[in-house]
């Protein structure tokens, strides 16, 4: 069985009277790319700050590499690289010097800095001041900083936030490379499901401080339900007719009925045609992850 890298047991956290996290439990195994999903304000950054011991948490319910974070802070953080929200960079220093300021603390040689610059694709911009970097470059340098001490676990908070499509692709490719070639375990938070879907092996979905789903990305995808979409010359009347026998929902573009069987489709068609409706389209649709995500993150 794979080693558990992050284990969080029934974590609660409040800012004053406001409860931000409610009984969160997480499990991340070695080699996972764990997508930590949730809308803005759901508690993702709070969870990440707790994972890094940046927020005060007296109970020992966070274990990294099998050890309670509270008691082995420095030892476990040795194996963690992180990027929280916007990358923390010294704008008056070049990309290289930003890495060097950190490398000095770790006692790391300059060769490693060059290596990192190569991994994050900033070798040619190494001498440029970080303040003059584009947002995508800053984000990559931030990831570079997280990688400097060759950590086993990368914790990245919204690493594609605010990036243009090119920047997003750059960061995504970099993360894939890190997981595949450098065998990192990656814990990445995002509010964009489509983003996580493309790289994650596992997903946790957080909403309003509660974990709504945790599992493999395939398990999430299997939750996708199939619906029948129907378009006619008069959707409103068709809705009245079909409602008698089926559970119909009316959306802007079509009427939707949960799929049961092919015979059911034929039956619907027959019913509509016999009642004088013109059927423009009738097809099966897999509910996409986006709407599944919306379902999972609706208040209950």
């Amino acid at each position: 069985m794979a080693e558990t890298i992050i284990r969080v047991d029934q974590l609660n956290f409040s800012f004053g009277n406001q409860q931000v996290l409610n009984n969160i439990s997480l499990n991340v195994q070695r080699g996972n790319i764990y997508g930590f999903l949730g809308p803005n304000g759901s508690g993702k950054t709070t969870t990440i700050k707790l994972l890094l011991n940046l927020l005060q948490n007296s109970s020992a319910n966070i274990h990294l590499f099998g050890k309670p974070l509270n008691q082995h802070r420095e030892e476990v953080l040795q194996k963690v690289g992180s990027l929280i929200e916007s990358p923390a960079l010294y704008h008056h220093l070049s990309g290289f010097d930003n890495l060097k300021a950190r490398a000095i603390i770790f006692g790391i040689h300059e060769e490693r800095i060059h290596e990192i610059l190569k991994i994050v694709g900033l070798t040619s911009a190494a001498k440029k001041k970080a303040g003059k970097y584009s947002l995508g470059m800053k984000q990559r340098l931030g990831i570079g900083l997280a990688l400097l001490n060759d950590p086993e676990l990368l914790i990245l908070d919204e690493p594609t936030n605010g990036l243009d499509p090119n920047g997003i692709i750059e960061v995504r490719n970099l993360l894939k490379k890190l997981a595949l070639e450098h065998h990192k375990t990656i814990f990445i938070s995002s509010h964009l499901l489509a983003e996580v879907e493309r790289i994650a092996t596992h997903v946790g979905i957080l909403f309003d401080g509660k974990l709504r789903f945790e599992g493999k990305i395939e398990e999430l995808q299997s939750l996708k339900s199939i619906v029948i979409c129907i378009e006619t010359n008069n959707n409103q009347s068709a809705l009245d007719l079909l409602n008698v026998n089926f559970a119909v929902t009316n959306t802007d573009t079509c009427l939707r009925i949960p799929f049961e069987s092919l015979a059911q489709i034929a039956k619907i068609n027959k019913l509509l045609v016999n009642n004088g409706f013109e059927v423009y389209s009738l097809y099966k649709e897999k509910k996409d992850l986006e709407s599944l995500f919306l379902d999972l993150t609706q208040p209950v």
Binding site: N53, L54, E74, V76, L77, V80, I84, A88, N149
Partner: peptide, 18 residues
């Protein structure tokens, strides 16, 4: 201010040093 401006307190305090 070097740290405030660069928002580096969080990264300094998440380093594996006390």
């Amino acid at each position: 201010n070097i740290e405030h401006k660069a928002e580096t307190w969080k990264s300094l305090f998440s380093l594996p040093i006390p």
